[in-house]
Design a protein around this nucleic acid. Structure first.
Ligand SMILES: [Mn+2]
Ligand SMILES: [Mn+2]
Ligand SMILES: [Mn+2]
Ligand SMILES: [Mn+2]
Lengths: 221, 221
DNA sequence: AAATAAATTTAGACAAACCTAAAAATATTT
DNA sequence: AAATATTTTTAGGTTTGTCTAAATTTATTT
């Protein structure tokens, strides 16, 4: 039995992982929808993944990743997010364009490549969408992120994620020059409309509305 | 019929191109050998590539790339060599390790990715093995390279290729700090043993033997 | 407790890419 | 010109990953 996983097998493993982290009920249909395929194809693949000892699976009963499967998923997610980070920070892609490309790059199998890429990028801990990047051992860094409103005045935070990723929101953030990784400080909080005057490094201060601010999360030590 | 080429189809196209550039006699068997596959599989693929109008093919008679096929090949080679350049110049891989990895990366299909990668790398013209990188329009840059011995004294050349790529040779070059793309100048040529005193930017001058020098090719304007 | 609905699995097929073994075409000896 | 050798193609299979349609199991109504 082949040790190396195919692109398809990897995509299934990753999708199961994601569905599991969102809800406990991971079933054949939801997985089929996630992967743009049919329930019958999912069943076929579940049998194979069970044979490869990556999932627990009893027919009609349900399925979930076992330890080996979880580790595998984390390693694929690591590759995916490192590539996303590369595409944004080095090649200058907008963060809403990188997912589809990383979906292909994540399947390039060289261990050495990912090790060197990680070093080259400076061992980043969060990807351009604010999601944590698992380390070599599959451990997810704990990112103690707080809502921008909870950041004390005049204290520097680093933008770690944005909960609304609609094109409209991304357009605004781009206009303000706010990105994942940006250093941000609150100069003043206005009670009247809960707007905030913020200061980003190398940029003049500006004011953002409550609607924008409440979707921004930062971390600080 | 699917417009996008599969990884396999791309590998076949690229191999045909390479065999054609080496010898006129490109036949089923040589292609099978090049691709580590069997003659029967090659015949199957030749039919498909003909259907996709990438090759001229008459059974028992022979085959070759047509214009569309040649352009396709050059575009794959462009991706391959840009990735090789990236792996060496940015990630610090040794040049003898990058081919296998680029063999996978070349199949990632985003046009935008290659455009941005090219810009990021500074539009390089030669890959780490000294091979020319086709431009966006599939044109191969003409690299007027000369043997290091032909480089006039005190004139700067750029190392463009090395004809001996044995591990022993690569080890020596690494020790001297000589790489594809290095700026190199000849300070003095010794008649006694035909050794050369050379000067690389940011390095003290050093002397290389005739055996080493004769394998080094440079280009200069 | 039936009846009905929903979810899941099986049965059977298909395309892509590969294989082995045999047949057919072409090339080279004798 | 035959005989032999080489090259290439076909015939028929396999594996992977997909599909539709039908069967089976489980869940929800009535
Ligand atoms: Mn993927
Ligand atoms: Mn992401
Ligand atoms: Mn390849
Ligand atoms: Mn190369």
């Amino acid at each position: 039995m082949n040790l190396k996983l195919s692109t398809s097998e990897e995509n299934y493993i990753k999708s199961i992982y994601h569905l599991q982290s969102v809800s406990d009920i991971v079933n054949t249909n939801s997985l089929a929808k996630e992967l743009n395929t049919k329930a019958a194809s999912v069943t076929d693949m579940l049998k194979k993944l069970k044979l490869k000892k990556l999932i627990q699976y009893e027919r009609y009963y349900g399925f979930k990743l076992n330890d080996k499967g979880t580790q595998t998923a984390l390693s694929i997610i690591r590759r995916h997010r490192l590539w996303e980070y590369f595409l944004v920070s080095k090649l200058g892609f907008d963060w809403d364009k990188v997912h589809i490309i990383a979906e292909e790059l994540e399947h390039v199998s060289s261990m050495e490549l990912i090790k060197k890429l990680d070093t080259y990028l400076g061992n980043p801990k969060i990807d351009p969408h604010g999601d944590p990047i698992p380390d070599v051992n599959g451990r997810l860094p704990v990112i103690k992120q707080i809502n921008l409103f909870k950041l004390p005045l005049k204290k520097t935070g680093i933008v770690s994620s944005v909960s609304n990723q609609s094109p409209q929101m991304l357009e605004m953030l781009k206009h303000y020059g706010i990105r994942i990784g940006s250093q941000i400080k609150i100069n003043k909080a206005f009670d009247f409309d809960r707007s905030l005057e913020i200061k980003l490094s190398k940029q003049p201060a500006c004011i953002i509305s409550e609607q924008v601010a409440k979707n921004i999360f930062v971390y600080h030590d």
